[in-house]
Nucleic acid binder design. Structure first.
Lengths: 339, 339
DNA sequence: TTGTAGGCGTTATCAT
DNA sequence: ATGATAACGCCTACAA
């Protein structure tokens, strides 16, 4: 066959279905949209016609008439460059896409060029979208909450200061960190240090708070703190500083698995056994957790679930269903060999 | 009616702009769409009105009337689960998104559930999209080329057997492999082995062919071949088999960086120095390349560019511009310390 | 329960 | 160059 570069036969319309089924367009519309009040026999012949013609409603027409787009936008504030390579982002998107697949909503992505945020803003407010999902890495960046009241928006992570109006879903970092630490206290460890994350990031702050809460609850010293920036190297450096304090440390809670990885190397280079001499618990349950030796006991960070929940909340918002404004997802302890 | 929760003032319409500018809707439409034949002064007042009202064309209406959606779909045949976590996929998408950002096309993703490909098919052919981009991992899976002739489609990677009709863009694996090998022959290596990729994947086949071509060109033995499956472990195993042949090998071209990493460990465990005793060149220039020690000399695989080119070709196709059916992207040698 | 008819915001075809 | 006036395909009161 000769490949025409042009389009082919036009898609069947509601009207054609109506003709074939011998009913009015209104009836077809009702059947297609699952209206409750339609005579079963009619519905039947309509459905037959739909299949015969392989009819699919035209989205644009539907949107124009109903003023609903059935589209939600994934807004990526960062410069397009690196986002997609980030496994965190990838997992969130996966969760979103998976949930949306169970609905009739479509996902479309727009990376708001910081060069021209107004363009993005106008697009969103131009009636082209039913709702917005914001996944940023500047944790707490809710600058797009201005859209609230105009258009439903759901954020990943809570804002730096919760003004009580934006919808968001976050992982319960504090509880997770406390659980990680409890694994240590529960095993009789008495000198528990932590390699904290950056204190200008919510995850860093919350995880440190969780560690501190549990350590105090157990009546232990809460001064064994060194901070890193979530990288392997910073974890190693922090572990080194901790050890150089000359105190006898028998356990470490690292605020993420990468820093735990850094701690491993220092611990091992100093001849300390894991977990015999020093037990280690991480956070995130990522690639590093399983590839380390001994395998890292850590806190599972439900990133995909986070995305799924975001999408769920947004759809609820769009359809006017009552929804919690803030959702905090629980974490779980994954026990392996390091603690 | 009662007030809808959250929603606000309706977006300004073309009609409102026309009223404010004191012209007809047709004229406004012309101005907005940059029609050549409009009186400058008129255009001016229209633009003023557009800004004043912060007018944005309604996408659905525009689509309905023009029968153009300005939307392209990224089709992901795999099961949703793992795709996003794959760095290759992530980079391709990044390239696509970046290019599309320079156009007026929107990107929307649909992961075709293998459970129900017909649904996807109907959506695509239902006039909801102007074109399709297919990124699959089953290299050569062009099962969606059936859409050709109905809707423009561009694939990542060439089909197993090129029937001469589907548009695709691929990286020149063969040339890249030859360049990698030439780095070795050029340095006077005489006994050059290769750790080939799976021979049921195009990348595996092409890279082996490139190695073979260069090795023969240099008049060397082309029997030093062992195959892996692109994983680190398989690379180590292949290296071991190569060494166990008892031949004196002074260089190795690994079909990807991960297998090169595996080769490194075996080489080092047998006390062979890199590159003094055995020079190594990889392919992909990924994370492994820089984290290995000594840093790996490798072939840069332009994944992001691949995505960008795909989008470019698709848009050209949609707009009826002449375009090459097959695009082969050049690779480049990245010289580091292993060869 | 089913059909009629008006409209959703643009583009496109004609005249003018 | 500009302006009426149909479509575009569907939804939704409202009427029957």
């Amino acid at each position: 066959m000769s490949a025409e570069s042009g389009q082919a036969r036009p898609a069947p319309t509601l009207e054609m279905v109506a003709a074939l089924a011998g009913v009015s367009r209104a009836t077809v519309s009702r059947v297609v949209n699952g209206s409750p009040s339609v005579d079963p026999s009619m519905a039947d012949s309509v459905e037959k016609a739909v299949r015969a013609l392989n009819y699919v409603p035209n989205r644009a027409a539907r949107t124009l008439a109903s003023r609903r787009t059935y589209t939600v936008t994934l807004l990526v504030p960062e410069s397009t460059s690196k986002v997609f390579a980030d496994p965190f982002f990838a997992s969130v998107v996966e969760g979103i896409a998976r949930y949306l697949n169970t609905t009739e909503y479509m996902l479309n992505m727009v990376t708001s060029s910081e060069s021209n945020p107004e363009k993005t803003r106008r697009y969103l407010l131009g009636g082209n979208v039913d709702g917005v999902l914001v996944v940023s890495h500047h944790t707490g960046d809710h600058s797009w909450e201005r859209l609230n009241g105009q258009l439903p928006v759901v954020f990943a992570g809570r804002p730096l200061v919760d003004a009580g109006q934006s919808y968001f879903v976050e992982v319960d970092n504090e509880e997770g960190a406390a659980a990680a630490t409890a694994r240590l206290t529960g095993a009789g460890r008495r000198s528990i240090a932590t390699i904290a994350g950056p204190q200008d990031m919510l995850a860093g702050v919350d995880r440190l708070a969780g560690w501190r809460a549990e350590v105090r609850r157990a009546g232990l010293d809460d001064a064994l703190v060194e901070t890193g920036d979530f990288t392997v190297a910073s974890g190693a450096a922090a572990m080194r500083r901790l050890l150089d304090r000359g105190r006898n440390i028998d356990a470490v809670f690292a605020a993420n698995d990468q820093m735990a990885s850094g701690a491993y190397s220092v611990l091992q280079e100093r001849g300390l056994r894991i977990p015999e001499d020093v037990a280690v618990v991480g956070f995130d349950d990522d690639y590093y957790a399983t590839s380390l030796s001994p395998a890292l006991t850590t806190i599972h960070h439900p990133i995909t679930a986070l995305g799924g929940k975001m999408a769920e909340v947004l759809v609820d918002l769009i359809e006017g269903r009552p929804t919690e404004r803030v959702n905090r997802l629980p974490t779980s302890l994954v026990v392996r060999d390091s603690a």
